[in-house]
Amino acid sequence: MEASHVESDLTNILYTKEEIQARVAELAAEIEKDYEGRDVLVVGVLKGAVMIMADLVRAMNKHVSMDWMAVSSYGSGTKSSGVVRILKDLDTDLMGKHVLIVEDIIDSGLTLSWLKTNLESRGPASVEICTLLRKPDAAKVQIDVKYVGYEIPTEFVVGYGLDYDEKYRNLDFIGTLAPHVYS
C-alpha cells in the first residue's frame, strides 16, 4: 500500500522502504559475522516481525533455520496489557541451539523479557535479540538487545509489519500514526 492511501492517518514517515532495506542488510551482515561457524535458529515473533524476519533472512548469506512464535499482551489497544499469552508455540526443540529472536518493535520490554526467559528455560546454547525498532524511553524493564535497527521516540508507529487494530501492516515504510486514529 502506498503512503497516499493513508496520508491523513499519519503525521510523518519515519523510515522509507529504501532506508529500512539498507538497515536490514547491515543487521544481516552483523548477525552473519557474529554467528560464523555456528547454526542459528531465527525465531520470528508473529505477527509484526513477518516483514523484518523475511527481509533479514533473505539478506543473509548463510543457511538459517526458522520458526515462529506468537505471543500477545496488547489486544486491540495501543498499550501493553502486561499479561503475556502464548498464542502459537515453537515447533522446534531449542536444546543446544543458538536462538535469535526477531521482533518488530520493543516498547516496554515486558513481553520480550518474558519471552526471552521462557526460551532460555528450554536449554538453548544462547538466546539473543534482534529488533527493527526500540523505544528506549518506554522501557519498563532492562533487556539486553544485541541488534537494533533504529531507536525511536515514544510515538505510535505503523507499517512494515507494525499495526494498529490489524491495519497498516502492509505499508512498505514506517510512519507515525496520527492520534485522531486511535484516540
Rank of each mutant, 00 (worst) to 15 (best):
residue 120 E to L: 14
residue 121 S to A: 15
residue 97 K to P: 06
residue 91 D to K: 09
residue 126 S to A: 14
residue 108 S to D: 12
residue 117 T to Y: 05
residue 119 L to Y: 07
residue 142 Q to W: 00
residue 132 L to W: 07
residue 101 I to N: 10
residue 110 L to P: 07
residue 90 L to Q: 01
residue 108 S to W: 00
residue 89 D to S: 05
residue 87 L to T: 13
residue 93 D to F: 00
residue 93 D to P: 01
residue 114 W to G: 04
residue 103 E to A: 08
residue 118 N to L: 11
residue 97 K to N: 07
residue 107 D to G: 06
residue 96 G to C: 07
residue 111 T to W: 04
residue 124 P to V: 05
residue 88 K to N: 13
residue 95 M to L: 10
residue 122 R to E: 15
residue 92 T to K: 05
residue 115 L to Q: 07
residue 109 G to E: 11
residue 91 D to A: 13
residue 90 L to G: 08
residue 108 S to N: 08
residue 89 D to C: 03
residue 111 T to R: 04
residue 142 Q to M: 07
residue 141 V to H: 05
residue 97 K to E: 15
residue 100 L to M: 06
residue 119 L to D: 12
residue 112 L to V: 15
residue 94 L to Q: 10
residue 129 I to F: 01
residue 112 L to D: 10
residue 126 S to V: 10
residue 94 L to K: 08
residue 115 L to C: 09
residue 105 I to G: 09
residue 106 I to K: 09
residue 102 V to E: 08
residue 140 K to M: 11
residue 119 L to C: 11
residue 92 T to F: 05
residue 132 L to N: 08
residue 98 H to R: 09
residue 96 G to E: 09
residue 98 H to S: 14
residue 138 A to N: 12
residue 140 K to V: 11
residue 114 W to P: 01
residue 117 T to D: 15
residue 118 N to R: 10
residue 112 L to G: 07
residue 129 I to C: 05
residue 87 L to V: 14
residue 127 V to T: 12
residue 121 S to H: 11
residue 98 H to G: 10
residue 116 K to N: 05
residue 104 D to A: 05
residue 124 P to K: 01
residue 104 D to F: 03
residue 111 T to K: 02
residue 97 K to R: 15
residue 131 T to W: 04
residue 89 D to M: 00
